[in-house]
Amino acid sequence: MTELRVESLAKRFGGLRVFQDISFILPQGGLLGVIGPNGAGKTTLINVISGRQPASAGRVFLGGRDITNKPAHAVSRLGLARSFQQTNTFKTVPVGENIARAIRFGGRGTPAGLDRMLDEFGLTPRLTEISDKLPYGLQKMLGLVMAFATGPAILLLDEPAAGLERAERHNVDTFVDIVRQAGASVLIVEHDMDLIRRMCPRILVLDAGVLLADGSPAEVLARPDVIAAYLGETEDAA
């Protein structure tokens, strides 16, 4: 059983509090959305869970095993992969080499569904193209595919739809579907509320570093404090 359990996690930079007292459980095969205004600490949360940055307090368990403050490569090897908000690939080598590296560094063989994923995103005919030459949307999908290619049990996605054209966003849905069919669970940090509504049965709302709400989109998004903290801001931004 591989569940992700986060207990009272906190992160401070110097005197600045990024987030504190974050607790949740992501059960095996689950799908959890995390939303919150810019600067709410969402990316840092992924960084801390995945071992990129050390936690200031609290613990992270992966399948009952304490992975708090383990280095990023160790966390990845234990089955927790993450994607990055900006496009993040090995830019100077072909698409195929990028995927080969992910499979190789992950060390768990080729995951089921990888070929289908490449077909769905139209990457199969472009395996020999240098990844930097791909259109932005495809580079972004390649980054997601690489995280999946390591064969994780849990995948943390940092704004997978950010920067994508509206027409490309269904790729994220397809991606998450294939990942879950492979038996992995997904935590998805996202600004696109439509995407969150249609995909996530449960969401967490982060505001100024604290967990404001935890529940189904319908109930959470109806709460006045959530609307005040978050929805007001997205309307401003829109």
């Binding site: 990129r52 280095p71 490569h73 992969a81 080598v93 590296r101 560094f105 992950g106 060390g107």
Partner: peptide, 21 residues
Amino acid sequence: RQHFAAIEENEILAESLGLVV
């Protein structure tokens, strides 16, 4: 070659993919 090139180009990505840099 693959490992060194990955570290040279994007160490953070290589590490997050599981490479023990």
